Computed example of a mutant assay.
Amino acid sequence: MKVAIAGAGAVGRSIAQELLRSGHEVTLLERRLDHIDTSSAPAATWLHGDACELELLEETGLQDYEVVIAATGDDKVNLVFSLLAKTEFGIRRVVARVNDPRNEWLFDEGWGVDVAVSTPRLLASLAEEAVQIGDLVRLMTLRQGQADLVEITLPADTPLAGRAVRSLTLPRDAALVTILRGGRVIVPQADDPIEGEDELLFVVSREAEEELRKVLGLGDSGDRPE
């Protein structure tokens, strides 16, 4: 897979290193000379220039890339790069870093973003997930379909215990992706039983989230403090 990354700071370089280790072809675009450190990812292609400049993206041949990642420390740059990648080059998958959580609402399909990754929000979600039992926790927003990856850790005395996965009448726009049980990762089958303390991962649209809560026997989200 060919991946272009805008921003070769600490975050961009780390992403490049991970992708290269997985055998992908990576190009890094960076306008600051002091951020260009080819020794940190010698197998990558390094280009000096502004990722918001259409001429540089044309020279890069961005249309030949499957994925682009906007990983700079400037939300404005990440938005412009994402929009150009999607509208001018037809990139199938655009992933963008959100630096300031107050700007997260901008990172949607209107700006060409398929997946927005907000580090502060992700860390907060993971902290909630570690301590909250019996309630939905949003882990990540998948903007292309206006859906979220959500998690619930069932209490030990859940009334769902012993029921088969097939018995869950899930909303149309919700899917049970994985059951985490102890050290196991279970791809759920229709006849698999649900157990207390299972960790369930769903992909669900915002509109279907309340219905999913009811299926799982949770209270109205309006009853919870945000």
Rank of each mutant, 00 (worst) to 15 (best):
A147M: 15
P159H: 09
P193I: 09
V150S: 03
G145D: 12
E88Y: 08
S14P: 00
L212R: 05
E104A: 15
R97Q: 13
V77S: 10
Q189N: 11
A124P: 00
R143Y: 01
E66K: 02
E66A: 13
G9D: 13
L168K: 02
A96L: 04
P188E: 02
R102W: 00
R166H: 08
R93L: 11
D50F: 04
E211T: 08
D135E: 12
L29A: 06
T178D: 02
G217H: 13
T38H: 05
V131L: 13
A174V: 12
V185F: 10
G196R: 04
G49D: 02
L160S: 09
I69N: 05
A161N: 03
D108I: 02
E210K: 12
R213Y: 02
Q144W: 05
L79R: 07
M1P: 11
R206S: 07
D108S: 13
V203C: 10
V203S: 03
R92F: 00
E58P: 01
L56G: 01
S221K: 15
G73I: 08
D157E: 15
E151V: 13
D37S: 09
R181T: 05
Y65Q: 03
A71K: 03
L136R: 05
E109H: 01
L139K: 03
P42G: 07
E88N: 08
I152F: 09
L149W: 05
S22H: 14
L200Y: 05
L216K: 01
T87Y: 01
L200I: 11
E109T: 15
A96I: 01
D223Y: 00
L170C: 08
T38G: 00
R163Y: 03
D192H: 15
D64S: 14
A174Q: 05
K86V: 02
R138K: 11
D223P: 00
T119C: 01
A6Q: 03
T141P: 00
G219M: 11
E195D: 12
S82C: 04
V98H: 09
V177F: 04
L201Q: 07
H24A: 09
L176T: 13
V137Y: 09
E207L: 11
A44V: 05
I5T: 04
V150G: 02
S221H: 14
R172T: 15
P101F: 09
V3C: 07
Q132K: 12
